[in-house]
């Protein structure tokens, strides 16, 4: 696909934004897959228009406190914790 809408630089840029480190072979693989995904979306252009339901507006709740999670519950899915904190790699 020479007229691909996605080039390897786009993939590297998007991966960089998502803090994902890709090997060169992976970049090639994803370049192809990204292009395929965009192709699928083009299929939407062929779907006939339908009347959409009227959109909701002003959905709000009162400013009242509701019980949330305990610290233990909040942390139970975390791969690593320390002193009640979620623990992750250093970021800058």
């Amino acid at each position: 696909m020479s007229d691909s809408p996605v080039d390897p630089e786009d993939v590297r840029h998007v991966a960089g934004l998502a803090r994902v480190d890709l090997a060169d072979t992976e970049v090639d693989e994803f370049t192809e897959q990204f292009a395929d995904i965009l192709d699928y979306f083009e299929a939407l252009d062929e779907v006939p228009e339908v009347d959409s339901e009227p959109e909701l507006v002003n959905v709000m709740r009162d400013d009242e406190v509701h019980e949330g999670l305990s610290q233990e519950e909040a942390l139970q899915n975390a791969p690593e914790t320390e002193d009640g904190y979620f623990k992750g790699p250093s970021v800058s």
């Binding site: 999670l69 909040a74 009640g84 904190y85």
Partner: peptide, 28 residues
């Protein structure tokens, strides 16, 4: 306000509160 913008967790921080003690599935 009393609560967070998109969930009912309290916004009031006590001086010596524990970390991650005012959360819920929305703000996590």
């Amino acid at each position: 306000t009393s609560t967070k913008i998109f969930c009912g967790c309290s916004t009031t921080a006590d001086d010596d509160e524990e970390p991650n003690s005012r959360t819920c599935p929305v703000c996590l």
